[in-house]
Computed example of a mutant assay.
Amino acid sequence: MTVVPASEVKSRMRSYIMQRLLMKGDGAPLHDDDLLFSSGRLDSLDAVELIMSVETDYGINFSDLGFDLTRLDSISAIARLVEQSSVEPA
Rank of each mutant, 00 (worst) to 15 (best):
V48H: 11
V48G: 12
E49W: 08
E49A: 14
L50D: 06
I51T: 15
M52N: 14
E55N: 08
E55S: 15
E55P: 01
E55Q: 15
T56M: 03
T56F: 03
D57F: 10
D57R: 13
Y58V: 10
Y58K: 09
G59Y: 01
I60P: 05
I60A: 07
I60E: 02
I60T: 05
I60D: 02
N61W: 06
N61M: 10
N61I: 12
N61C: 06
N61R: 14
S63W: 05
D64Y: 03
D64Q: 12
D64A: 09
L65E: 12
L65P: 04
L65K: 07
G66Q: 11
G66S: 12
G66I: 03
G66H: 09
G66E: 10
G66N: 11
D68S: 13
D68R: 13
D68E: 14
L69H: 09
L69A: 13
L69Q: 11
T70N: 13
T70H: 13
T70L: 12
R71M: 08
D73M: 07
D73G: 08
D73T: 09
D73L: 06
S74N: 11
I75D: 03
I75M: 04
S76I: 01
A77E: 09
A77W: 06
I78H: 00
I78E: 01
A79Q: 01
A79C: 00
A79L: 00
R80N: 04
R80H: 05
R80C: 00
R80K: 06
L81T: 04
L81R: 01
L81S: 01
E83V: 02
E83W: 03
E83K: 03
Q84I: 05
Q84A: 10
Q84S: 11
S85F: 01
S85T: 09
S86H: 13
S86P: 04
V87R: 08
V87A: 03
